[in-house]
Simulated assay, not measured.
Amino acid sequence: MNEKKYSQMTEQELRTEIANLKEKARKAEQLGIVNEYAVYERKATMAQAFLIDPASIKPGEMYRITGDPGMFFQVEYLKGQFAWGYRLGGDKFEEALPISLLETIKEGK
């Protein structure tokens, strides 16, 4: 088994991997295999995080959370491809999100 880590993949390899994972997720969803669907979606989200420059995420800034409408995330610090911080209006417990889940608020997406 000669699998590369996402951190070792080129942009093209990552894009191919994401497409493959999304396809597997789509098939699992069609078959009603919910847990398998969730695993492929999470893997795709992680792979997407490696296409984003961590320097584009600023500690102290507020971001929208992709796929969680109306939920905002306050970034405290970055570690690798994860942003650590707090959800606004939550219980203020620290959590880490892949940076691919963060959307800037300023661009009004």
Score class of each variant (00 low, 15 high):
6 Y>L: 02
6 Y>D: 06
9 M>V: 07
10 T>M: 01
11 E>R: 13
11 E>S: 11
12 Q>M: 09
12 Q>S: 13
12 Q>E: 10
14 L>A: 06
15 R>D: 01
15 R>K: 15
16 T>M: 08
16 T>P: 01
16 T>E: 12
17 E>P: 05
17 E>L: 08
18 I>C: 00
18 I>K: 13
19 A>E: 14
19 A>S: 15
20 N>T: 05
20 N>Q: 10
20 N>K: 09
21 L>V: 11
22 K>S: 13
22 K>D: 13
22 K>V: 09
24 K>R: 13
25 A>M: 10
25 A>S: 15
26 R>I: 09
26 R>W: 00
26 R>H: 01
26 R>T: 15
28 A>D: 08
28 A>C: 09
28 A>K: 04
29 E>A: 14
29 E>G: 06
29 E>K: 05
30 Q>Y: 11
30 Q>W: 09
31 L>A: 12
32 G>T: 05
32 G>W: 07
33 I>N: 06
33 I>C: 05
33 I>D: 12
34 V>F: 12
35 N>A: 11
35 N>Q: 13
36 E>A: 12
36 E>C: 06
37 Y>G: 07
37 Y>L: 08
38 A>E: 15
39 V>S: 06
39 V>K: 12
40 Y>Q: 14
40 Y>A: 09
41 E>M: 10
42 R>D: 02
42 R>N: 14
44 A>T: 10
45 T>Y: 02
45 T>L: 14
46 M>T: 15
46 M>A: 14
47 A>N: 03
47 A>T: 05
48 Q>P: 04
48 Q>F: 01
48 Q>D: 14
48 Q>H: 12
48 Q>Y: 03
49 A>V: 07
49 A>N: 03
49 A>P: 03
49 A>E: 07
50 F>I: 05
51 L>Q: 04
51 L>H: 04
52 I>D: 01
52 I>Y: 03
52 I>R: 12
53 D>T: 02
54 P>M: 00
54 P>S: 04
54 P>E: 02
